[in-house]
Amino acid sequence: MTHDLRKVAIITGASDTRDMGSAFCRKLASRDVDIFFTHWKADPDYIIALYKEIENLGVRCASIEIDLSDRNAARHVYESAVEKLGQPSILINNAAYGVNTDYHSFDAELMDNHYAVNMRSTFLLCAEFARGFEKSNLTSGRIINMTSGQDLAPMPGELAYVATKGAISAFTKSLSSELAPLGITVNAVNPGPTDTTWMDDSIRHSLLPQFPLGRIGTPEDAANIIDFLVSEAGAWITGQVIHSEGGFMRG
């Protein structure tokens, strides 16, 4: 297969072996998709190891270290991906920013910090991707925006996070209508509480009884739903917020 016929995916937020972004990279690379990923403040040895792991699957790999809160980050990410690997047909907005914010601590700076990564960077990268896709010869594209189930139940103490993640759900639904004529599907995925870098043993112990399947979700579980949505089997699904939570029970 020549490079200009290969599928290229942009995946944001792959900075640690335990995070979902890295799992997405591995999964799509195993499906013969070239991988361009972003990372920030990651261990350089890990980035080298991820490169080798992906390339050993027989695909190309490139990345950029970038602070997605920069107002020009989306353009830099997109242009770097095109320069290094060619026109992408898959975009997975996985990177997120989140710190505890209740009404006592809620202020402009905290809101701006969440907005810059969770909303502005995500939305602008979607637009960059769509404009480039429209000018290409590609006929089938996928955008997947990761969200957090904030519309299913209250998440007290996470006001800035839920506000910005909730905007992703609304944006996804409207963007899907605009991009459908281009052949691009746009969906959001809520993977539920997932055992990544934010979990410790006390959190795992607290959450486990709320999973009727008897275990906590893993990055690989999230990668499986991503794999389905970017495949031909997922071509008829667009404008949806998919809750893939393993039956997680709130309350």
Rank of each mutant, 00 (worst) to 15 (best):
A95V: 11
L207T: 02
S105M: 10
T38L: 05
R204F: 04
K165R: 11
D107P: 10
M155V: 04
A29L: 02
L138Q: 15
Q240C: 09
L85C: 07
M1T: 05
D34Q: 01
F24D: 02
P44D: 13
N187S: 07
G166K: 08
E55H: 07
V8Q: 07
S148F: 11
F211M: 01
K27Q: 12
T218K: 04
G58M: 10
V99I: 14
K135P: 05
Q240P: 02
I11S: 07
T172P: 08
T172Y: 06
N94E: 07
G157V: 02
A9G: 02
G247R: 07
H3L: 14
G239P: 07
I10L: 11
D107V: 10
A74F: 06
T164Y: 08
L208R: 14
Y103E: 04
R26I: 13
S22Y: 10
A14V: 02
V117S: 09
R31W: 04
Q240F: 03
T185F: 05
W236P: 00
T101E: 11
P181F: 06
T38H: 04
M249C: 12
R60E: 15
G246R: 04
V241G: 12
T194I: 12
H205P: 03
T164K: 09
G58K: 10
W198L: 08
I47N: 09
I237A: 06
S80H: 14
F228T: 03
F211Y: 14
A81D: 04
S177N: 12
A23Y: 05
V33G: 05
V186L: 09
A233V: 00
Q240H: 13
E79A: 15
D43S: 08
M146W: 03
I242G: 13
F129T: 08
L208E: 13
N145Y: 03
F36V: 07
D195H: 07
L28C: 00
L182W: 02
K7S: 15
E83H: 14
R6Q: 15
E178L: 11
R26S: 12
G234N: 02
T196I: 11
E79S: 15
S89E: 02
A14T: 02
M249L: 14
H39P: 00
S244T: 03
S136N: 09
I10V: 13
Q150N: 15
V241P: 10
D201H: 08
G98M: 13
S80G: 15
R75Y: 04
S140H: 15
L124P: 01
Y97S: 04
L207D: 00
L124C: 04
H114D: 13
D34W: 00
L213R: 14
T172C: 07
D16M: 05
L138N: 06
I66M: 10
G13F: 09
H104M: 05
D4N: 13
T196V: 15
L124R: 10
P44K: 12
L110T: 08
I11N: 06
